[in-house]
Amino acid sequence: MSTIIKDKKTTGLEENGLFPSNEVMLDLKQLKKVYPTPKGDYVVLEDLNLQIKKEEFVTIIGHSGCGKTTMLSMIAGLNPISGGNISVLGRHIKGPGPDRGVIFQAPSLMPWMTSLQNVLLGVNQVFPDATKVQRNDIAKYYLQKVGLEDAFHKKASDLSQGMQQRVGIARAFAIKPKVLLLDEPFGMLDSLTRGELQDTLIDIWNKEKITAVMITHDVDEAIFLADRVVMMTSGPRAKIGDVLEIDFERPRTRKAVLEHDDYYKYRKHLIDFLEH
């Protein structure tokens, strides 16, 4: 394992355009978000530039209310863009679409459907030409991957929070998106369940290698999962404050990561940023 920390104290703007364009999956340029209020405009994000490579796992960390979720929902197309643009594989996004899968903070499953039906809801939409058996197989495959082989026909409302979020992960991966957006998906879980789900997520991600952007509050989670940790400045007018490359080999195990010499350097770097 490499022990060099590629610690670039760069601004977001210089970071932008670092990669050859054929390697870029997601490109945020001069992104701006303004909420009009009676007291004048409130600028949440401004001059936000970020490029994410294909097959890269990026975690985003920052203080509460800095605009992380706003940024993510703009990428998902659920929140209109006030300025700048977002493109996936060079094409500007227009509204939401199944090329960007989302795992929400709340599992957001349809509680009246079984876990299989919840996953099928997306699969049916994305693979309309597949036969019913094929679509069922896809949904079941991903449910198995997240460890729910015994819960295909359980109602979502009968599952625990952790299991519901597992279904959420299966639903997102099963539609084979180009980009996976995760909005603090484990924030509502207890730490034990959170660890299990991180393992599940990284296992399935190692196989699928879908470009992922994940918001988190948890420094350890950010380091364990990511190729790069993006730190956002506090709002208003939040932007990218710093980027930290995590040079651990994949596949990673939690034990190896925790015992690695660089782990505490990375950790200190992130905590120093957050405390300023």
Partner: peptide, 16 residues
């Protein structure tokens, strides 16, 4: 709103 967001992300048709 969560359910509507899911429907939007999955691009479900009006009928669905």
């Amino acid at each position: 709103k969560d359910y509507i967001n899911v429907a939007k992300v999955l691009k479900l048709g009006t009928f669905q």
